[in-house]
Write a protein that binds this DNA or RNA. Structure first.
Lengths: 325, 325
DNA sequence: TTGTAAGCGTTATCAT
DNA sequence: ATGATAACGCTTACAA
């Protein structure tokens, strides 16, 4: 900046002002400063700015995985909103291990973000403590709790499981299978499903825990195992994601099983392809864009406004009935 | 750090040393320093560290979209490798507009990243200039060129299109259709395909430009349009992504068209589901993990070693023949 | 093994 | 409208 100042015949401070608040600088010097910037290819150092102003315009974001559309669509909406307001996203994948998340949180906090976004409400005690101590807005996504670190935006996974179980019971099924990838929130949905379904129908519930990232192939495998291990060829299958459901449907068709008459299949997430699969998937719809968008809004109002928004935001879900169940 | 020093009975510098190079500090003071850190919940300020050391341990990454598995799988591999070596990823989505990418590059550079990763080899002249001026390693991904900004890791999209056309001709097709989402690299593949296919077979090539993000629904729509607008019910369809190919296959099955006898379908990317779709997709396979991984390695050796790796890295592609063509 | 001093490139504060 | 000066919280010499 000092060099730009010399070129433009002003001091370093004036250059700083020209960039951060042009209204405080005369149009003539403004022009000379921009010319000098153009010539030199000067790019201001945001590290120095953040250090002294204590505002980094950086938002830390932690997701289990970036390749799952479930998270990436949410991060996309979140990031878009944040970028529009002049913030950048420092993104890390944490996997599912709490200690990895804790480490990532420390790393993020060392960059002094203006706010943090976390996935889920399940964190290590130390992570909570450090986050609280950081004194910045924090939003937890995808789930709700009575005691968020600061803010949370999501929906009740227990309620989602109950809704799926009620649908299964209402549509006359007395056998059900649960197929999931083993993540914490999916487990809560399936536990709620199992309890409610047994309660209402007295029927049997079997379960396949794939313990692997959800994929079409894993979905096909799940149905094969369901048939091989449990002789499950009639009933409703509740999958922890649409991708798994799509795999189950594909495998069922290959085997000549009729959907939904013989096998009813429910997914979760209402991803783009859900409506276009043949037969179209019945699923629990979650608005992932709204999730990211609302989280961004809530953080922004905390960062800039003071507080405003309430701290527990339940976005709910809806059951979309299509052809597969 | 000064406060930690006071608690541990040492100076601020010793605390700094304890954190950056523990071997330079006696085990006893090291212990006292860590106790003090534990008590206070101190998190070092990486902004200050980066400012003076001129090393941010930050890598800027620019992708068109994070929700496309094509890019997210690559970024995942890239980020994993970088994190393992102590770097964090500043990620931005740039869409397809060059001016947006340019703006994002400026923003990233202001944070003084130790290196930058860009998608594609097509950038604005100003972007090139600024990047060059930044004096940091830059890697361009997904494509190769004789004149990269610094490094490039990818493969020839022209060659990929030729390979697909040769396959189509070799398997006896004399009509072909191209379905694509309109992105720059897909256009280069389809242009190469069209030219080679016409040259070899003299046959007709029709084209659908969806001008929308690739999706299952768009793939179904594409086949509907192909049939409606061109009466295309026999021949080979080369799609710019597996997702579109999957949509075409789904629509074909719904309409009772036989694959591959009547309609042969080729995808691009060899995504996870490609092998599990029914019928399994014939596609051009690109190793997205290797792409990210090699890009990270190349940058790392430039950052830390000096130079080492050669600057144009062609990872190639392969044609995977399955059932759909 | 530890400490002192200088300075990284900005913004904030107070003058002019 | 502009400038001088003092931080911000670290790392890097250099010294003890």
């Amino acid at each position: 900046m000092a060099a730009i100042g010399r070129l433009a015949g002003v001091s370093q401070v004036t250059v700083s002002r020209a960039l951060s608040d042009p209204s405080k600088v005369s149009t003539d010097t403004l022009r000379r400063i921009h010319e000098a910037i153009e010539q030199t290819g000067f790019v201001p150092n945001a590290l120095a700015g953040a250090l002294v102003s204590r505002k980094s315009r950086l938002i830390g974001a932690l997701v289990p995985s970036i390749t799952s559309i479930v998270y990436s669509a949410m991060v996309q909406a979140f990031g878009e909103r944040m970028r529009a307001r002049g913030y950048q996203i420092l993104l890390s994948e944490t996997g599912t291990a709490l200690e990895d998340e804790e480490r990532a949180i420390m790393l993020h906090l060392s960059r002094r973000p203006d706010a943090m976004m976390l996935t889920g409400i399940h964190h290590s005690p130390k992570a909570r403590k450090i986050l609280l101590g950081a004194g910045i807005p924090v939003v937890e996504l995808w789930d709700i709790t009575e005691s968020p670190i600061d803010l949370c935006v999501g929906f009740s996974h227990g309620a989602a499981g109950l809704a799926a179980a009620d649908f299964a019971a209402d549509t006359g099924h007395d056998r059900a299978a649960l197929v999931h990838a083993g993540d914490e929130r999916a487990l809560r949905r399936k536990d709620a499903f199992a309890e409610r379904f047994r309660q209402r129908t007295g029927g049997n519930v079997v379960e396949i825990n794939l313990n692997a990232p959800a994929s079409l192939g894993q979905g096909r495998l799940a149905l094969s195992r369901l048939i091989g291990e449990f002789g499950f060829e009639k009933g409703l299958i509740f999958c922890s994601s649409d991708l798994l459901a799509h795999g189950v449907v594909t495998e069922a068709q290959t085997r000549g099983l009729r959907i939904p008459q013989q096998l009813a299949v429910m997914g979760f997430g209402d991803q783009e392809f859900a409506a276009h699969v043949e037969p179209a998937l019945t699923t629990l719809s979650v608005d992932r864009e709204a999730l990211g968008w609302r989280a961004a809004e809530a953080l922004l109002s905390r960062i800039e406004g003071g507080q405003a928004d309430r701290s527990i935001i339940d976005l709910g879900f809806s059951l979309v009935r299509r052809k597969s169940a």
